[in-house]
Design a protein around this nucleic acid. Structure first.
Lengths: 163, 163
DNA sequence: GAGCTATACTTGAGAACTCAAGGATCATAG
DNA sequence: CTATGATCCTTGAGTTCTCAAGTATAGCTC
């Protein structure tokens, strides 16, 4: 790490290489999410997590999901989701809905305002992602990168999303 | 995103590809750092950020750095560093040191205990990184990945580290 | 149908940040 | 030498999470 690790030259053993790659991964994540979330906040008053949840709901069947499934798909804890949805509910973007067959679960449903919001926000946000992330790579590099990243642990996401 | 975006099959346009790659990047980061930091905490009572700062100091000249430079290299704000170092100082891993030539700056210096701590922690932590991240890739894939990640915005890290 | 365990959700307390503001020192320009 | 502005650091307040504990419901087993 430090000087050696982030400069390209000192890359030598397989081990240092892993360290370099990991450090770049970490720093890039910090730098990009910082910028993305500040833009998202400024333009749409949404957190990156808010946005993430909204998009999950947007694509879900009936634009509705169990809270626990949201938690798993965006990698937050159940209690994190409770608090996050509290916010989105008080903004009128999401509503609660009881489940007929299981009284333990409450669905989160996207409201009309929520749909509108996410459609607006997605435009600028996708452009930002393209600028800060995607545009760095040629088409076939994108595929490579996507494939490589796909080998990393994604926790429950893959399962939750391949359903 | 959602179903389409994280499954490999629905990958089609360049745009969706960027979205997929970005989502994988985000989720992988969440999943890996969660696991890494829980192991680090359990074995060594260190945060991922603590560790990061400690390693930066470990490799710095004289094992000493200005707080502002630490902030830039690990991508935290100055105030975040103040609080983080407060913790490390009260654990005796790091000490303050006045700068002779500039009274505004206080250095953070790694103590003997700090050196020992980081050398211990690095062993298991590097193994964890290898397990959760590096081991997913063949040697030449590591180089590819490292190169690709190097094109992403790393904020001040590159400058701070190439010095 | 009584008890057990598992699941879904919420809540209180606390960790790890951020931002905005303030204090101290430095560097420069007049 | 003195004002001006930049830089380094800290602090108070607020945000967004987490973990642990608690409540309520479900389903299974005997």
């Amino acid at each position: 790490m430090s000087s050696q690790v982030l400069s390209t030259q000192a890359v030598s053993s397989a081990h240092d290489l892993t360290e370099t790659a990991w450090l770049r991964f970490l720093r890039a994540h910090a730098a990009i999410t910082r910028e993305l979330s500040s833009r998202l906040e400024a333009l749409h008053e949404l957190t990156l997590s808010d946005f993430d949840v909204l998009v999950q709901l947007y694509y879900a069947e009936g634009r509705r999901m169990r809270r626990i499934d949201i938690a798993r798909s965006v990698l937050l804890t159940a209690s994190g989701i409770t608090r996050l949805l509290d916010g989105l509910e008080s903004c009128g973007l999401v509503a609660k809905e009881r489940c007929a067959s299981d009284a333990r679960v409450t669905y989160a449903v996207l409201t009309g305002a929520g749909v509108k919001k996410i459609e607006e926000a997605r435009e600028s946000h996708n452009a930002d992602i393209e600028e800060l992330f995607g545009s760095r790579f040629a088409p076939e590099e994108r595929e490579q990168l996507t494939e490589l990243l796909g080998r990393l642990p994604l926790a429950h996401t893959a399962e939750a999303c391949s359903a």
